[in-house]
């Protein structure tokens, strides 16, 4: 794998896609955070590799717009924490969600590549978290990296992060 120079994490929120646009934007803050992180990621015009599940990569490609994609040293990882943080959350309230997300948040901002690779896929599935690319993210963040958090919120009971990492 090409050594990473720039890595960004965004959540795979379908409401970011134009096909699901309403008259007002329910995720305006998240969209702005994604736009600023992706602008940083693509500023030199080098190609970006998108990592995530099928829906997540669709969201990632939309956020990249006309920027080139393909092998290179820039990565857009698509994933998010649990969707069980409140009673109104898509997966309803699960008492384990807060702890799961707190640990995940610490692993992301550390960053702690080992902890990212060790995320329990069974628990993640039960908490409706999208962590398909977490192992690859752990690999990308091996070595010294500094995290900058653009967005950390759970407006619909789903844990979102927009984070960028660069080598220390």
């Amino acid at each position: 794998m090409t050594p990473p120079t720039r890595v960004v994490l965004v959540p795979g929120v379908l409401a970011l896609l134009p096909s699901y646009a309403g008259l007002t934007d329910p995720v305006a803050d998240l969209r702005a955070a994604c736009a600023s992180a992706v602008a940083w990621l693509t500023r030199d015009g080098s190609p970006v590799t998108v990592l995530g599940d099928e829906q997540g990569t669709r969201v990632g490609h939309h956020l990249l717009g006309d920027s080139p994609t393909g092998a290179g040293s820039s990565y857009l990882v698509v994933g998010n924490g649990s969707a069980c943080r409140t009673e109104k959350a898509p997966g309803h309230l699960d008492a384990r969600a807060a702890g799961f997300d707190a640990a995940l948040g610490a692993a992301l901002t550390g960053p702690d590549p080992e902890a990212l690779r060790a995320v329990d896929p069974g628990l993640a599935r039960e908490l409706w978290a999208s962590v398909d690319a977490w192992g690859q993210l752990g690999d990308l963040l091996t070595g010294d990296h500094v995290a900058h958090v653009h967005h950390d919120d759970d407006p619909f009971g789903v844990q979102y992060w927009v984070i960028r990492w660069e080598p220390a």
Partner: peptide, 12 residues
């Protein structure tokens, strides 16, 4: 012919 005012259900 008109988008919903604000749609988030199932799209979070």
């Amino acid at each position: 012919r008109r988008p919903p005012a604000r749609a988030i259900r199932g799209l979070q």
